[in-house]
Write a protein that binds this DNA or RNA. Structure first.
Lengths: 253, 253
DNA sequence: AATATTTATTCCGTTATTCGGAACAAAAGG
DNA sequence: CCTTTTGTTCCGAATAACGGAATAAATATT
């Protein structure tokens, strides 16, 4: 592996949380020698990944191009989008699609609602697999050994007021999700926001994505959730079918 | 500057034109020693910029995150989107927004139409500044010395059937654009597609983007274009105002 | 089933490149 | 005018990248 490259790309990651950074600021954040940072930044600028905007540096538009390519090439996303829109029409709630990336969930598509009170999620956002309905549905339906390994090692850090931080409770919730085929979250990733999520399977019967309906907590009462679940399940089924999943078969676990 | 980093990021650029690449294929394309390519690819995988999908490598979802961040942070885009949607409603044609990135134009936003016959442009797509209405409008309104330098050195390569490849003709078209405040293209970037574009200015009176209406060539007759121009100009004015441009003032050239 | 072939990965001595302190330059602030 | 801050260049030392060759793994061929 190539140390310099990894370090340089780590540096680039700083720009995920900082819109603009001056050389000095990068030096402080990375605690790397100024000269080294300078060289790395130069290289990133030369490659179009950063650009200098007056004093400070910011992400280059090349990254926009890459991002769009990735979005286009995600075929779950392609299959899901029309059905997500339909689901939004039926429920009048925001609909999200997440996939697993390592030990994290990443939001790859969203359909916003026009409701005055709504929950905003950003495409590209990451969340741990244990928090939030949509990430957790990925966790619940992942191969059982992998799941076990994850559950044994993961550190449960609170993100919002009701993030599950108890390992046993998490296991219970996951088992319930597996049994019922969906999972619900209240204020796990953001306060006052709730979600209901179901899994999407590919042609091999493997979970490839989670589909969720998200909205303000006060609206997500049990009776309302009961109404949402069949709609979500139907949508997920449609998407899974589009990916070649043969309905009815048992999921490999 | 950091050679290894630049080379590695060059390698990554291969994935803009190739959805998937195996190690072998990368070696052939780059003509670099296998071991070096291997190391670079490993580094990119470690940083989440590539991921291994079975045999081959493909772009990692980290890039989706970066792309979304860039999109969000482009304030021209923020200001333009609602007005672009409105313009689409008025004209029933696809609307594009491009900005300049070095010697190229890059499409940063689009609003699609529901017309059966339409032109598809991908966000993140690049085009030279001399071809297509939208890129050319950036060229026409850029600072005159910079424009001169560009025009003296650029190599005019045909892209579609009517791409302008004659330097003098290009200069004429640019001067016309400056005078009229808009420019038109027919089959310059893609056959049978036409566009009308106008400039967007920021608070300093500098051109920061081009706004265009794109559609099938047969629909874009002179009489139709005459109808489009005022609508486009009005929309561009709105966006420019949102960016702090004080209308009426002369543009710095 | 054994062998050939292609592709991926590890090893390791050589050397080019990165490293980083220090000096320098430029700009901002007192 | 001097001080301070931030960005850029220099250069010898040290390390990290290089790449040929060997190995391993997976595929194809006989």
């Amino acid at each position: 592996m190539n140390k310099t490259v990894v370090k340089t790309l780590e540096l680039l990651q700083l720009f995920m949380t900082h819109e603009q950074l001056t050389l000095q600021e990068i030096v402080k954040l990375t605690k790397l020698p100024k000269t080294s940072v300078f060289r790395m930044v130069q290289s990133l600028v030369a490659s179009g990944f950063l650009k200098k905007d007056g004093e400070a540096y910011e992400l280059g538009v090349s990254l926009l191009q890459f991002g769009c390519l990735v979005a286009e090439r995600l075929d779950v996303r392609k299959a899901a989008l029309p059905i997500m829109k339909q689901l939004k029409e039926e429920t009048n709630e925001a609909v999200n699609l997440v996939i697993k990336d390592g030990d994290e969930a990443i939001y790859v598509e969203k359909v916003e609602t026009s409701e005055p009170v709504r929950v905003y999620t950003r495409v590209g956002r990451r969340a741990p697999l244990y928090a939030g309905a949509c990430p957790r549905v990925l966790l619940a339906f992942m191969p059982s050994e992998e799941q076990k390994k994850y559950l044994d090692h993961v550190e449960l850090i609170p993100i919002a007021s009701k993030t599950i931080v108890d390992r046993e409770q998490l296991k219970t919730v996951i088992n319930e999700a597996k049994k019922k085929g969906y999972t619900v979250s209240h204020s796990e990733l953001a306060d006052y926001s709730s979600a209901v999520a179901v899994p999407i399977f590919n042609h091999e019967g493997k979970v490839v994505a989670g589909l969720s309906v998200v909205g303000p907590e006060n609206r997500f009462q049990p009776s309302y959730i009961e109404q949402l679940v069949p709609k979500l399940k139907y949508a997920a089924e449609q998407i899974s079918k589009a990916l070649g999943f043969i309905g009815g078969k048992n999921v490999k676990l």
